[in-house]
């Protein structure tokens, strides 16, 4: 059994605990044991905190990486934003000795040292590269018969100078992993567009951020999908909580279910939407829940 540390970040444990739980369940089923990364903090978010002060961002991000180094395992995240921060910080400190020395001076004050011994992994690229689409397919007991709009999000694949995940304009690995569950990945307009949350925009100009989310959901709905599947709790929050805000600000009602890939995989493995926390979304769509309750062989 492989082992990884599980970096939680903020939004999964504190807003969508179902994503945290689903991830542990599905990885265990796939033979990957996730160890708690005790005492980790906010990643901290790449667009905002990195903008405010680079050294603080690097010191806090590298502290999270170091906690995993000290356990001797690679680190796994289920969030594009956390991946963005931790991969970029890890790479920068591995490459730039001056920067590493500067950051290590700070980390020494709290009893740590960055050594550059581990890799930061995102669940989607880990599943694709290390577990493999075939093994994911074999883990599915109940094919998930849903039409899905895949939302890659941004920091999973970009900036590509820090990642190597194939085409930036037309990536396919996420779609392949979605189809491995028995679902159909449906093409929709501006599929690779950003959800609008990042870079501090959701914090500073909510209404503008929501316009991007609204376009995204509109395009997915026009393609006739059952739900949007993402791999990032921040995109998840922006598109789920965002729908309640969009309704208030613009009057549009979509009732679009938002599902994290871990939760989708859990459904195919036979777990119920309740066990996976899919019913805990802020947008309530009973019809969808009733539909996915049937996947696990129930009636």
């Amino acid at each position: 059994m492989s082992e990884l540390s599980f970096f939680l970040g903020c939004i999964a444990p504190n807003r969508y605990p179902g994503i945290e739980k689903a991830t542990k369940i599905v990885m265990e089923e796939l033979g990957v044991h996730l160890k708690e990364l005790k005492g980790a903090s906010c990643c901290p978010a790449p667009g905002v905190f990195r903008s405010f002060d680079k050294i603080t961002w690097l010191a806090l991000a590298s502290r999270n990486v170091v906690l995993s180094e000290e356990m001797g395992v690679d680190l796994l995240t289920v969030c594009n934003g956390c991946f963005g921060s931790l991969v970029d910080a890890n790479n920068q400190l591995k490459e730039d000795q001056d920067l590493r020395a500067e950051v290590n001076k700070i980390l020494a004050e709290v009893g740590h040292e960055f050594k550059g011994t581990i890799r930061v992994r995102h669940i989607m690229e880990y599943l694709y590269d290390d577990v493999g689409v075939e093994k994911v397919k074999e883990s599915i007991k109940y094919p998930v018969d849903l039409k899905i709009a895949v939302h890659y999000g941004c920091h999973l694949i970009k900036p590509s100078k820090e990642r190597h995940l194939g085409s930036i304009e037309n990536p396919t690995f996420f779609d392949e992993l979605v189809e491995a569950t028995g679902a159909t990945s449906v093409m929709y307009k501006d599929k690779n567009a950003c959800c609008g949350a990042g870079g501090g925009v959701r914090t500073s100009s909510l209404e503008t951020a929501l316009k991007l989310a609204r376009a995204k959901i509109e395009h997915a709905q026009a393609a006739g999908v059952d739900c949007i599947v993402d791999a990032c709790p921040f995109c998840h929050l922006q598109m789920d909580v965002g729908q309640t805000e969009i309704e208030k600000k613009f009057g549009d009602v979509f009732n679009m279910p938002i599902v994290h890939y871990s939760q989708l995989l859990g459904l195919g493995m036979g777990y119920t939407p309740q066990e996976l926390g899919i019913d805990m979304n802020y947008v309530k769509n009973d019809e969808f829940i009733a539909k996915i309750e049937k996947i696990g062989g129930g009636n």
Binding site: P46, G47, C154, H155, K158, P159, S160, I168, E169, N192, A193, C194, G196, A197, G198, G199, G200, V201, S204, S205, T208, A209, L212
Partner: peptide, 11 residues
Amino acid sequence: WNCTTCYKCQE
């Protein structure tokens, strides 16, 4: 502060 840092343009 309007950039979401989606990095499309940088690519």
